[in-house]
Each structure stands twice: as structure tokens, then as C-alpha cells.
């Protein structure tokens, strides 16, 4: 069973109103996603190596930059947001909003501890 395919098989009942491109064969799926995965692994290796660089604050910037590159790769290529409709993009952005809840309230704790002198 091609269990690892990230793209959905056509459901058994009537075809859905799909807003993404037509369902593709497994070959096309692997050819798009496998390079994405390889690049992600390469960026992981790069960020692991960069974590040991002694250049001070630029290291953090580099870390964020690599994370941004990975996010863009996943979002635009793997999730095909380049070709997606506005509604799908908004839903994808909700994930970022939810992560922002975590960051905002956690930082509210950490920063107000620091400010509390």
C-alpha cells in the first residue's frame, strides 16, 4: 500500500469539490516531495553545524533564517500553497496563529519576569 503518500486518495463516494490541483499519480508526488525532504535534511545539518559557531547574536539570526527557509519550502512546495486558493492559505496561516499563541503567552511570562525588578 502506498501508505506514505501525503496526497489524499480520491474518497470512495462522489468526488469532492477540490480546491487544489487534480489528484496526481504517486510518481509525481514522490518527485516533488522527496527533494523537499532531502533539502530539509540538509538544512537540518546546516543548522546543527551553525549552532556551534561562535559569532554571538548572528547565530540566532542564522537559526531563524534557516527555520524560515524550511517553513517556506514546506509551505510553498510541499503544501502547494503557491497554487492554492485564498481560503486554503488562510487555513494554513491559522497554524502560524496558533503557534503565535504559544509564543505570545510564554514570552509574556518570561519577559514580565525579567521586567519585574
Amino acid at each position: 500500500m502506498s501508505a506514505k503518500s501525503p496526497k489524499s486518495e480520491t474518497p470512495k463516494s462522489e468526488p469532492p469539490k477540490s480546491e487544489t490541483p487534480d489528484p496526481e499519480g504517486p510518481g509525481i508526488v514522490w518527485r516533488r516531495n522527496l527533494p523537499v525532504w532531502v533539502v530539509l535534511m540538509a538544512l537540518l545539518a546546516l543548522s546543527t553545524w551553525a549552532a556551534y559557531w561562535p559569532y554571538g547574536r548572528i547565530d540566532t539570526a542564522i537559526g531563524f533564517g534557516i527555520a524560515g527557509a524550511k517553513t517556506a519550502l514546506v509551505a510553498l512546495v510541499f503544501m502547494q500553497l503557491k497554487h492554492a486558493s485564498g481560503l486554503v492559505r488562510i487555513v494554513a496561516a491559522c497554524g502560524l496563529f496558533w503557534a503565535a499563541i504559544l509564543f505570545t503567552l510564554t514570552l509574556a511570562d518570561v519577559l514580565s519576569r525579567m521586567a519585574n525588578r
Binding site: 489524499s8 486518495e9 470512495k12
Partner: peptide
């Protein structure tokens, strides 16, 4: 009123 879930193999996985 559906015949199965949307992703039956994913369900098994």
C-alpha cells in the same frame, strides 16, 4: 451518510 472516512488507508496507519 458517507461510505467511509476520507482517507481510509491513513485510518489504518
Amino acid at each position: 451518510g458517507a461510505r467511509d472516512v476520507a482517507y481510509p488507508k491513513l485510518n489504518l496507519i
